[in-house]
Amino acid sequence: MMELYLPVVWALIIAAAVAFYVVADGFDLGLGILFPFTKEEAERDQMMNSVAPFWDGNETWLVLGGGGLWVAFPKAYAVIMPAVYLPVIVMLLALIFRGVSFEFRWVAKPTHFWWDVAFCGGSTVAAFAQGVILGALIQGIAVADGRFAGGPFDWATPFALLCGLGVVAGYALLGAVWLIAKTEGPVADRARAQGKTLLIVVLGFVGLVSLWTPLGFSRIAERWFSLPNLYFLWPVPILTAGLGLLVWRGIDRGRDLAPFLGVVALFLLAFLGLAISTFPYLVPPTLTIWDTAAAPASQIFLLVGVVFLLPMIFAYNVFVYWTFRGKVRPGEGYH
């Protein structure tokens, strides 16, 4: 029994960690992607300041996602990482440029131009690489004898590149609605305009991926369109469209928090959709969560830690977000 349920529990934990990462670091990275659309140094300061106390904690979810995959599904980790070797390393290098920019940019002032470039470039490339990795996972990985058996550029398909662009647009949208919630003045005004454009672009990408996956991969078509699945799954696209409308109206009516919450819900729904498409495969189309699970003793050992520590982690995350609540105004940080 344990062998049956433990991998499901761990799949849920890792999915939650990845979802947290995508939302939380998504808006951090999104700010970076939106950096070039203002030339004003004060506005860039304001944008960066709105996430400076949080970005490190947000990025930690990426370590939990990757580390969790290793702990709970070592055989999947050992297949996926070599398969997406180049995009993962490019992502890590991009995150280096993005991460150090938070500190270097301030020390370098007034000659910080290149750190603006590094922040924007690092954020954009990291987002793109994450999308490519996602696409590579969805489209499947060549496996023989439980090991990666493909080439170094297997991931580089039009579908994966489309996913890369989709994630860049998605993070930019998250960044824009974050700025609506956390800033005032010209930055927030611009974010409202950007938010609407990006919403349309992102919904376009969601639509494309939703069409491409069932058309391109029969296992996904079967999952969605066979009966009785269709009865349970038809609300997913309807909800997506409804949420899109809600976000649009939230921006239109000058609401601060509603657009952000709406986009987060949109992301979670898209994430759920992809999970429906791939479950129970961790390495589609061959290895399931049960094929790749770690020893139950190992999964239980860390599960105990998760049960006790994750609530604490949530608690101090809430504490930090509460401490730095409110708006960042032009030309000032938190006071």
Partner: peptide, 10 residues
């Protein structure tokens, strides 16, 4: 793996 996992969590 779990040792690294505990590092992340704690």
């Amino acid at each position: 793996g779990p040792l690294i996992g505990y590092e992340v969590l704690t």
